[in-house]
């Protein structure tokens, strides 16, 4: 895991070389220099940076992400509290994106140059270009304020019931999924298009197989690897995409936690969360690599 070590060094350096003193912030308006110094010593911030890094790394290796300067709660606990909303949002977004985009992409490829194809390509460029928050506000305005169908903000834990859970997540997930629908539909279209030009498709069609079967069993199956790759990348980048969405919809997820921690100079939390994200990133990439074996019989590790 040299990648994670690099991440650890980068994040630590970035934070500790920056100006801004968490001790002064914590002490409040009326604190004296001595009070601030004693808080700084209490946090261990008075030691050389290299020593601080060593201590932190040692703890991380033994599975301890440290304690938030502010809440004096274990960073791991904080992450645990925020995991469900972020995970739920990411999962629903991905599910929605795949369910919509893969059929769209296949259809567009099937009728290349047709109206659906052109509409999809146009939409996908648009999808990359509309800022997430503008879209979010449009959806809130339409579905929550004008029509009154959905809540405007917040998150309901799945334990509170599936109904409220989904009602709260529909808008954020839709907002966030647009860009992935654009992305995955494009790649699906391109890959299926490539597959449709291959000899075996012509053979299959010549044998008189139904068109749907040709499309799904042959063309789509052979286009699976690039699609899986792009979905995998999509999952990895979702991590960042949730930050904006969580902010607009007031979802108490990991994205908000990071922004708050950065503004408060809560070093252990920032380090912990970024490290956590990086681990997720590495794991997702690993899973994608493994999925190639399943999807493409030609690849064997």
């Amino acid at each position: 895991m040299p990648v994670l070590l690099v991440v650890a060094v980068l994040v630590f350096a970035l934070l500790r070389l920056a100006p801004g003193d968490p001790a002064a912030i914590m002490a409040g308006d009326a604190a004296t220099a001595e009070q601030i110094a004693s808080i700084r010593a209490g946090l261990g911030l008075d030691r050389p940076i290299v020593v601080q890094f060593g201590i932190w790394l040692g703890k991380v290796l033994s599975g301890d992400l440290g304690e938030s300067f502010y809440f004096r709660i274990k960073v791991a606990t904080l992450i645990g509290q925020r995991l469900e909303p972020t995970f739920a949002l990411a999962a629903l977004t991905m599910l929605l994106a795949v369910l919509v985009s893969v059929p769209l992409g296949v259809l567009a490829a099937w009728r290349q140059g047709g109206w659906l194809d052109r509409a999809l390509m146009g939409f996908s460029v648009l999808g990359f270009s509309i800022p997430v928050f503008v879209l979010a506000y449009l959806l809130i305005w339409l579905f929550s304020l004008e029509l009154g169908w959905l809540p405007v903000q917040g998150y309901a834990r799945i334990a509170e019931g599936v109904g409220p859970f989904l009602r709260h997540l529909v808008l954020p997930a839709t907002t966030l999924s647009v860009i992935y629908i654009a992305l995955i539909a494009r790649v699906t279209r391109a890959s299926v298009l490539e597959a449709l030009g291959e000899d075996y498709i012509r053979t299959a069609r010549a044998k008189g197989l139904p068109e749907l079967r040709v499309l799904v069993r042959h063309a789509l199956a052979n286009a699976a690897v690039p699609i899986a790759t792009v979905i995998g990348i999509g999952v990895a980048i979702l991590i960042g995409g949730v930050v904006v969405t969580e902010s607009v919809y007031a979802i108490p997820g990991l994205g908000r936690l990071t922004v708050d921690a950065v503004l408060a100079r809560d070093f252990p939390t920032i380090q912990g969360v970024i490290l956590f994200f990086s681990v997720v990133y590495v794991l997702v990439n690993l899973l994608i690599d493994l999925s190639y074996v399943l999807l493409d019989p030609r690849i064997r590790y």
Binding site: I140, S144, L145, G148, P151, V152, Q153, G154, Y155, S247, V248, Y249, A250, I251, P252, R256
Partner: peptide, 19 residues
């Protein structure tokens, strides 16, 4: 105490809807 709802417009919307 709802500590997550910090966007001013979202606060107004949520109060209007009784959330």
């Amino acid at each position: 105490w709802n500590l997550a709802l910090r966007d001013a417009q979202a606060q107004v919307n949520a109060l209007a809807r009784g959330e």
